[in-house]
């Protein structure tokens, strides 16, 4: 008896429209649509797409609970055993929407699967809740994505015990599952020690979180002509925290203008960081982001120019993977703007 699957896609793949239709509320269509047709063909008689949920990316990201509820009703209405979302490739909001849809299905005890480019922000946020297959960074990769998704979905539905991410081809979710080995822990420990003594390869059963090293870059030759940029994890944002960066476990960073700002005051700026006593930073944000001193140095010609935009996020409890990703993005933007050096302040 074929498995019944709900497929989630966005407004573009659902043929509703492009960016202009990103606010399209969720709609339920019987049968397959868009990439679902290729999935249906790949599944043959093993599974069928009972219905497709088509929803605009902005709407989904803006109304998470409502869309999750809508998906729950669709799963119940069609008695579906699984939800497959995407593939979203490198589309950021579509990746978040697919992650949300898959998580909603997983939360309701259904098999859930989506697929996107490994760098897509949706991966880090939702990998703990659902399986995610890696895809190319654009729809050109549809050819490999669909068969992989089809096969993996059947594997999940058959309930076979999965091997590691490397063996089965999904993105490692960082979720620990218990298992029973052939040997007791003590034997495994002594065997591992013997290999370590002899310098042989061994596989640790738990990897300690670790940070990578970066080669130091050469110093700035002439500071008086250099453009310096400010970045902070201390959470200094314009008053009112326009991007609503949370006090901990931030999911984004902000880029804010310093045009015409000579000194950070408590009236125009504040801290959003929940990891320390905020009174001092709110009283004088320069204590975290030294704009006043750098402006003086700029006037005195000690430095060439203070880059008019600064980047800020909250470093409190933020996932290492997120921070590394933002570091890359900010570095890229600063390089394109020909900034020569960065002052990174932390609290």
């Amino acid at each position: 008896m074929a498995y019944r699957i709900i497929h989630y896609i966005n407004q573009f793949f659902g043929g509703v429209g492009g960016e202009d239709k990103a606010d399209h509320p969720p709609e339920l269509r019987a049968g397959a649509a868009g990439p679902g047709l290729a999935l249906k063909q790949a599944w043959g008689d093993q599974a069928e797409i009972a219905a497709t949920v088509v929803c605009g990316d902005n709407y989904c990201v803006g109304h998470p609970e409502e869309v999750a509820g809508f998906i729950g009703q669709a799963l119940d209405k069609y008695q579906a055993q699984a939800l497959v979302a995407g593939p979203a490739f490198n589309a950021g909001r579509y990746g978040l929407a697919c992650g949300l849809a898959a998580s909603a299905a997983a939360a309701r005890g259904r098999v859930s699967l989506t697929a996107m480019f490994p760098e897509n922000p949706g991966v880090e946020i939702y990998k703990a809740n659902t399986f995610i297959l890696p895809t190319a960074d654009s729809a050109r990769g549809m050819g490999q994505a669909v068969p992989a998704m089809a096969a993996f979905a059947i594997k999940l539905l058959n309930g076979r015990r999965l091997g590691s991410a490397a063996e089965e081809g999904y993105i490692e979710r960082g979720v620990r599952l218990n298992t029973f080995h052939d040997e007791i822990g003590a034997e495994r420990a002594v065997n591992m020690l013997m290999k370590k003594i002899k310098g042989q390869y061994f596989l640790t059963e738990y990897k300690m979180p670790a940070f990578d090293r970066v080669r130091p870059r050469p110093g700035v030759k002439d500071m008086s002509r250099a453009t310096i940029a400010l970045v902070t994890s201390g959470g200094i944002v314009p008053k009112g925290n326009p991007d609503h960066i949370p006090a901990s476990s931030a999911r984004s960073y902000g880029a804010y203008s310093l045009e015409g700002v000579d000194d950070l005051t408590g009236e125009d700026f504040q801290t959003a960081h929940g990891g320390y006593d905020q009174t001092f930073a709110n009283e004088d944000p320069d204590r975290v982001l030294p704009v006043d001193v750098l402006r003086c140095m700029e006037r005195e010609g000690r430095i060439g120019r203070l880059f008019p935009t600064y980047f800020a996020t909250v470093g409190n409890g933020t996932a290492v993977a997120h921070a590394a990703q933002w570091g890359g993005e900010i570095g890229q933007k600063l390089r394109e703007a020909e900034v020569q050096a960065v002052i990174l302040t932390s609290t």
Partner: peptide, 16 residues
């Protein structure tokens, strides 16, 4: 992994 580290005053008010 920082390569150029400048110790600051204290956590809640690093530069003051």
């Amino acid at each position: 992994g920082a390569n150029r580290i400048i110790p600051t005053v204290a956590i809640p008010h690093p530069l003051g």
